[in-house]
Amino acid sequence: MALIRYFGQIAEATGCTREKVCIANINLKDLMDRLNEQYGLERFQKQIAVNQVLVNPNKTYLIKDSDEIVILPPYAGG
């Protein structure tokens, strides 16, 4: 089970801040397509972090069972 975490307006759209899902061995891009469809996330600008490192969502990355995937809206500190 991989862990997906959401922040800010994206957590508001998904209705949760984290969820565990069976998504091992699928591509990050396919996961994002699935989440965009499920939660209507397409309308948000976002960045993706895998295991605490920001990644290019268009690059091929095969998700592992132990991964933590974090979906971040635009930063608004200060």
Binding site: F7, G8, Q9, Y75, A76, G77, G78
Partner: peptide, 23 residues
């Protein structure tokens, strides 16, 4: 700090509605 640190702000209005802060 404003551009690179993942911090998010929920602006809460007087009537308890909100919007998300945009830098």
């Amino acid at each position: 700090v404003k551009e690179e640190v993942p911090i998010f702000g929920k602006e809460i209005f007087d009537n308890e509605t909100h919007q998300w802060k945009v830098n």
